[in-house]
Computed example of a mutant assay.
Amino acid sequence: MKTLWDYTIVLQPDNNGTFVAYVPAIDGCHAWGETPEAAQSELENVFEMIRDEYIEAGQALPDNVELVASHAR
């Protein structure tokens, strides 16, 4: 069974002074928090809920995606 740590996680500041954490490979797998740690902790809860939904539906979680960063000049 896949865990959150099998996926690429993006953690970044939000425009509201909070932080957002998300898994690009899984639609809807995102969370916010006042600190990076809080956002990541909430993301773990969201991932577990989504994983349970996939299991109940008899579906496999999607494969991870590789992110490529580019810096605009």
Rank of each mutant, 00 (worst) to 15 (best):
M1I: 13
M1R: 14
K2V: 14
T3W: 12
T3S: 15
W5V: 14
D6N: 15
I9N: 01
I9V: 15
I9E: 02
V10F: 06
V10C: 11
L11Q: 01
Q12S: 14
D14Y: 12
D14G: 12
N15R: 15
G17L: 06
T18V: 13
F19T: 04
A21P: 07
Y22H: 15
V23R: 02
V23A: 00
V23G: 00
V23H: 02
P24S: 05
P24D: 03
A25P: 05
D27G: 12
G28S: 06
G28E: 09
C29V: 03
C29I: 04
C29L: 04
C29D: 04
H30V: 11
H30C: 12
A31P: 01
A31R: 00
W32E: 13
G33T: 02
G33E: 01
G33N: 04
G33R: 03
G33D: 02
G33Q: 03
E34L: 12
E34D: 14
T35A: 07
P36R: 03
P36F: 02
A38E: 07
A39R: 01
Q40D: 09
Q40F: 10
Q40T: 09
S41P: 01
E42C: 06
E42K: 11
E42T: 07
E42W: 00
L43F: 01
E44P: 00
N45H: 09
V46I: 12
V46Y: 00
F47H: 04
F47S: 00
M49A: 13
M49F: 07
I50R: 05
I50C: 03
R51W: 08
R51L: 05
D52M: 08
E53W: 06
E53S: 11
E53C: 10
E53Q: 04
E53L: 09
Y54I: 04
I55K: 09
I55F: 10
I55Y: 08
A57W: 05
A57L: 06
A57Y: 01
A57K: 08
G58S: 08
G58F: 07
Q59P: 00
Q59E: 13
Q59V: 06
A60D: 12
L61A: 01
L61K: 02
L61C: 03
L61F: 01
L61G: 00
D63M: 11
D63V: 09
N64D: 15
N64V: 04
V65G: 02
V65E: 05
V65W: 02
V68C: 08
A69M: 08
H71N: 07
A72N: 11
A72H: 10
A72K: 07
